[in-house]
């Protein structure tokens, strides 16, 4: 049972968290202007890197706050976690702070 450090509540067991997928996937400013393929890419396609990956997580069983994390997909290790910035949200979520 891995520990995940909620930026607010501190380290908790992973069962308290939910995964929110890749960070920095912004909802398109004007979906109507996208081609079907561009829209499908936004809805269905995500990166799947081997190594550090910027992700979104939420502390579902705790404070219910979303936060950003960089996790190594090879080792599951959380390299950093930090709050989602109020202005950048999904669009650029690479957190700087490590607790």
């Amino acid at each position: 049972m891995q520990l995940i450090a909620c930026p607010w509540c501190g380290p908790r067991e992973e069962i308290e968290f939910s995964y929110g997928g890749q960070a920095a996937v912004a909802y398109p400013a004007d979906p109507a202007s996208l081609s079907d393929e561009q829209w499908a890419r936004f809805v269905f396609f995500r990166d799947n890197p081997k190594g550090p990956f910027a992700e979104r997580w939420v502390h579902s069983a705790g404070c219910r706050r979303w936060f950003g994390a960089v996790r190594d997909t090879r080792t599951y290790e959380f390299l950093s976690v930090g709050p989602l910035s109020a202005t950048t949200a999904r669009t650029s979520v690479l957190p700087e702070a490590t607790p």
Partner: peptide
């Protein structure tokens, strides 16, 4: 509720 919070917190925090 999670769905609404997700949009609110991560997409439209304004």
């Amino acid at each position: 509720l999670d769905w609404m919070e997700e949009w609110l917190q991560t997409e439209w925090p304004e």
